[in-house]
C-alpha cells in the first residue's frame, strides 16, 4: 500500500504541481484546496503525512495543525508547513509542526525532507 500524503494549499497551481511531484515520487496524494474542509478530510483519510500552507482563506494552516495535534492519535503523523511567509518558520514551530519548507522549494530537497520524516515515523511505530 502506497504511503498517503495529504497536501493543503489554496493556490491551485502549487497544489497541482506538488501533487504531480509527489505522485511521480510514488506517493498516494490527497490534494485539498479549501482549508475549511481540510480537518474533516484529514480525519476521514488519515494520511501518513500532512503538507500544508499557512496563509489560506477560511482557516490558516497553523490553526489546522494545532487543532489536529491536540488529538493524541495524531502526534505521530508528521505535519509540515510549506509557506512563502518569512515568519513561516516561527509560526510552524509554535503551532507544533514537525518541519518547515520555504516556497519556492526544491524538488529534491522537498522529497528528502518528507522521506526523512516518514522514515522517522515508521521507525517510531515499531
Amino acid at each position: 500500500m502506497a504511503i498517503k500524503i495529504m497536501i493543503c494549499d489554496d493556490e491551485i497551481d502549487i497544489l497541482d504541481v506538488t501533487q504531480m511531484i509527489l505522485e511521480d515520487a510514488g506517493f498516494e496524494v490527497i490534494a485539498v484546496s479549501d482549508s475549511l474542509n481540510a480537518e474533516q478530510i484529514f480525519l476521514n483519510e488519515m494520511p501518513d503525512l500532512l503538507l500544508i500552507d499557512l496563509w489560506m482563506p477560511g482557516i490558516s494552516g497553523d490553526r489546522i495543525i494545532s487543532s489536529l495535534k491536540s488529538n493524541v492519535a495524531h502526534t505521530n503523523i508528521p505535519m509540515i508547513v510549506l509557506s512563502a511567509s518569512d515568519t513561516g518558520k516561527q509560526t510552524a514551530m509554535s503551532c507544533g509542526a514537525e518541519d518547515f519548507i520555504p516556497k519556492p522549494y526544491d524538488i529534491d530537497n522537498l522529497l528528502d525532507i518528507l522521506n526523512s520524516h516518514l522514515i522517522e515515523k515508521s521507525n517510531s511505530k515499531y
Binding site: 497551481d13 502549487i14 504541481v17 512563502a84 524538488i107
Partner: peptide, 23 residues
C-alpha cells in the same frame, strides 16, 4: 509581506513544474 508572498507563489509553481519536467 504581501509582495513577498505574491512573488514567491508563481515562482513556486514555475520552479516545481520546471524541476519535475527536468527530472
Amino acid at each position: 509581506n504581501i509582495a513577498s508572498h505574491e512573488m514567491k507563489t508563481p515562482l513556486t509553481s514555475i520552479k516545481g513544474n520546471f524541476q519535475l519536467l527536468e527530472k
